[in-house]
Amino acid sequence: MSEAKSGISSIGTVATFLNGRACSDTLFHVLNHAFDHPLKEEERAVVPLAGGIMQHGYQCGMIWGATLAAGARAHRLLGAGSQAETKAIVAAQGLVKSFRAQNNNTNCFEITRIDKSSSATQMITYFLVKGGAVGCFRMAAAYAPVAFGEINRALSEDHVESPPAPVSCSAMLARKMGVSDMHAVMAAGLAGGIGLSGGACGALGAAIWILGVKSLKEGGGKLDSKASGAVDAMDRFLKCTGHEFECFKIVGRKFESVSDHASYLCSGGCSKIIEVLAGK
Rank of each mutant, 00 (worst) to 15 (best):
G178T: 10
G193M: 09
R153A: 15
G189Q: 00
N152T: 05
V179N: 10
M182A: 11
M177R: 08
S162T: 10
N152L: 08
R175F: 15
M186H: 05
K176H: 10
G195D: 04
P164K: 02
G192Y: 10
G189P: 00
F148W: 04
R175V: 13
A154S: 02
D181S: 05
G198A: 01
M172W: 08
E161G: 14
F148I: 03
A147V: 12
M186W: 03
V179T: 12
P164S: 13
S197P: 07
I151L: 01
M172G: 05
S162L: 10
L155H: 11
G149C: 07
S162N: 09
E157I: 12
L190E: 01
S170D: 05
A200L: 02
R175S: 08
D158Q: 15
M186G: 03
A203D: 05
E157K: 06
G195K: 07
V160E: 09
S156L: 11
C169S: 03
S168C: 14
L173N: 01
S197F: 06
G192P: 07
S197N: 11
A184L: 14
A174E: 09
H159G: 15
M182T: 14
S170I: 02
M177Y: 11
V160H: 12
L155G: 01
L155C: 11
A171R: 04
E161N: 14
S168M: 11
V185D: 02
I194F: 00
S170K: 00
S180Y: 08
E150G: 08
M186N: 11
H183K: 13
A191V: 05
K176E: 13
G202L: 08
E150K: 14
L173Q: 04
A174M: 11
G198F: 01
H159E: 15
G199R: 04
M177L: 13
P164T: 13
P164H: 08
A188S: 13
I151Y: 02
I151K: 00
N152W: 00
A188K: 02
R153T: 15
H183P: 08
S162A: 05
R153E: 10
S168R: 09
A165H: 02
A200S: 03
V160F: 11
A174L: 07
L155N: 09
S156M: 11
R153M: 15
D181K: 07
R175C: 14
P166C: 15
A191T: 05
G149M: 03
V146E: 05
C169K: 02
V146P: 03
S156F: 14
G198H: 02
A203Q: 10
S168G: 15
E161D: 14
L155M: 12
H183A: 06
